[in-house]
């Protein structure tokens, strides 16, 4: 474990390993998302109540999962950065934040689009959508705080602390919003709140979820590698890499 942490201190090592891994993740992501899309959109049966409009679940649920997971991994990176002073962890956290914000936005947008056929309106203060909206604000806060600092180091530390504070609050926010919603809308219809989805419906959903996670990992690897080059631009190994003919740039 400790040896592994020591290795993570070296961005050079991560750059090389990341370069080897990323094509596989990209291939898996594109393959699974293509498979899941075709399966879910063309072959899965239509919902008896919502008809074809339910198929938006294949985008909404994976992005909603990712939106939350990315915040947690961002906070974990922040913790690693603050405790072990691993700069690489902060580089990863800094590239994850915009991806997470984008995923949250897509989840919100797909939820709103889904609302049109189900509720007849673009926005309802549904518990899930409301927590998503709050999560989007949390992401924007982390990104804005990092950018507000003049020094890279200060911004990195501040963003790490805020991400950790946020991750403690996410479950509290989620439960209180759920509670608030049931209080005000006792017997309303939630879009994904139903159990017992038939196998033919959730199998493609599972493929999509795994595909989206691979997409996130691949994108994070690629973006972290360019972040390494940007921040370590002055170091000798980066200059040598550029002179060699820039393998993997």
């Amino acid at each position: 474990m400790w040896a592994f942490i020591q290795k993570l201190r070296s961005p050079k090592w991560f750059y090389a390993i990341g370069g080897k891994c990323q094509p596989w993740f990209w291939a898996a992501a594109l393959g699974l998302i293509a498979l899941g899309s075709v399966w879910g959109l063309a072959f899965a049966p239509a919902d008896y109540q919502q008809g074809n409009s339910f198929r938006i679940i294949y985008v909404h649920v994976p992005t909603a999962f990712l939106a939350q997971s990315i915040f947690v991994s961002m906070a974990a990176c922040g913790l690693a950065f603050m405790v072990w002073k691993i700069k690489l962890a902060d580089m990863a956290a800094s590239v994850m934040a915009p991806i997470g914000a984008l995923m949250t936005f897509v989840a919100l947008y797909s939820g709103a689009v889904w609302g049109v056929p189900t509720w007849g309106t673009w926005w309802i203060w549904d518990a899930r959508l409301t927590s998503m909206l709050i999560l989007l604000f949390l992401y924007i806060g982390v990104i804005a705080l990092r950018r507000a600092f003049a020094s890279l180091e200060g911004g990195a530390r501040a963003a790490s602390v805020l991400a950790m504070v946020g991750v403690i609050n996410i479950p509290i926010i989620k439960y209180s919003v759920d509670w608030w919603y049931t209080l005000h809308q006792p017997a309303s219809f939630t879009i994904t709140g139903r159990a017992a989805m038939p196998m033919a419906m959730w199998a493609p959903l599972l493929v999509m979820v795994v595909g989206f996670y691979c997409f996130f990992i691949a994108l994070t690897l690629t973006r972290t590698r360019s972040e390494i080059l940007r921040r370590e631009g002055g170091k000798r190994w980066v200059r040598e890499l550029v002179e060699e003919g820039a393998d993997g740039l």
């Binding site: 604000f137 806060g141 705080l145 926010i173």
Partner: peptide, 9 residues
């Protein structure tokens, strides 16, 4: 921006 989302609960 940082604090208001945390105030919601």
């Amino acid at each position: 921006l940082l604090v208001l989302p945390l105030y919601i609960p």
